[in-house]
Amino acid sequence: MKQISLFGHFLFIFFCVNSCIGTTSPSQKMDDNKSVLVFKDKKFDNSSVISIMGSGEKAQKIEFENCTFSGSFSFTGLEIGYNAFQVSCSFKNCSFEGDLTGKTTQFLGSLNFNKCRFKKNVIFQNSAFLGPLAIKDCTFDGDGLFQNAIFFRESTFMGSHFYGIPFFQSARFFEKASFINVVFHSNTDFTIVRFSEGVNMDFVRAEGNLDFTDSRFEGISSFKKAELVKGVNLSNIRAFSTIRFSETTFLDSLKTTGAKFFSEKLEIVQPKGTFAPEGD
């Protein structure tokens, strides 16, 4: 029995959303009894996903492709209290002109952003991601606010560019966190973060400070071939597995003041032509 069949008995009524600029209704796809709402090439003035779906909507997944969200946009439309958002969401080649807000929200489904552009801030403070989170090849023009977020499943930000500041303070990644090939154009905050299965920073380019102060590394973490232009701060970290800097380019110091390595050591394999990090 497929898990999704439990939800297969809903009657879905689809309608065109009034504030959706365009003349066509969203298309409906039935995939193994799973209902999917699909919007393509549209511009939305709506303030939330919920308002786009409509109050009676029971779709399990909603997909946006080549869409533009003109103002500040949220998932639930609710600003206060802890909210639950039950629908899986996928955004491909979308542009968010205002803030994208999902703070203090439990995301029960998966969230996918592929080649999207966030022109203002992306706000997921105090949120919990129960499904996988994938933000791939996206551009953050503003800040990425993920403080105190809990990532229960694998989460990836692969290939994305952060022009604003990514804030991950006090976030918890219970499965692997992947930042492969990410470019951090400004300072980055990973302080007091818990990486239960480590973090993959391979091929990352960090042009600002990369700060992991007070963070906890419980799985193997890797910075293979990363280019770390400014300092990397591992002060007061707790490392229970190897943190591997393999062929990593350091252009500034690596601070490890007060760091504790409980079982494994810091592995640093320098590429030719780079200087050794000076330490503290």
Binding site: T104, Q125, N126, L145, Q147, N148, F167, Q169, S170, D189, T191, I192, D211, T213, D214, S235, N236
Partner: peptide, 11 residues
Amino acid sequence: NSESVYQFATG
């Protein structure tokens, strides 16, 4: 209890 920068409100 951190040397890090306090930067957001929880609840």
